[in-house]
């Protein structure tokens, strides 16, 4: 699968990760701004996969550092729930990840995204995705 270029969606909280994601313009990565980790909906994650993402990351504020108090915790819990749904569906749950990123940590964002990207590359295209 050397020539497979995955598509990764990063749902980034505007108070932290999005401030970094905006700066980094990584190929194959689509950052989407969300107002807070708490705004993440199961439906939206599934929808991103349905729209052709090979992987989805939810990136919110560091633990105990959420502007909206528990939005990041809610995001993590929702991601875990959707991981369960993905397994039921038959999609590798590793395609979805939650990570906390601080607004000033470009390095960490880059690292996390690269790591995920490489992982997706190894996993290959989404289960059932029509290969071009």
């Amino acid at each position: 699968m050397a020539d497979f270029n995955p598509s990764l969606v990063t749902l980034c909280c505007e108070n932290s990760a999005f401030l970094v994601a905006e700066e980094e313009n990584l190929p194959g990565v689509t950052p989407v701004k969300i107002p807070c980790g708490g705004q993440v909906e199961h439906y939206h994650i599934l929808n991103a996969f349905d729209q052709g993402a090979d992987g989805v990351m939810v990136l919110a504020c560091l633990k105990e550092n959420c502007k909206h108090f528990w939005g990041n915790d809610r995001a993590e819990k929702k991601v875990n729930y959707v991981k369960g749904m993905l397994e039921n569906i038959g999609i590798n749950a590793e395609r979805l990840a939650y990570s906390p990123v601080a607004a000033n940590n470009e390095y960490k964002y880059g690292e996390l995204v690269k790591e995920m990207y490489d992982k997706l590359k190894e996993m290959g295209p989404m289960e059932g995705k029509v290969k071009k």
């Binding site: 439906y43 996969f49 349905d50 749904m85 039921n88 569906i89 999609i91 059932g128």
Partner: peptide, 19 residues
């Protein structure tokens, strides 16, 4: 409504995966 949309999306993804 939310759960209905979620379930529909899950079914759609599953079926896609099953071709």
């Amino acid at each position: 409504k939310k759960e209905a949309e979620e379930t529909a999306e899950a079914i759609s993804l599953h079926r896609k995966k099953e071709n």
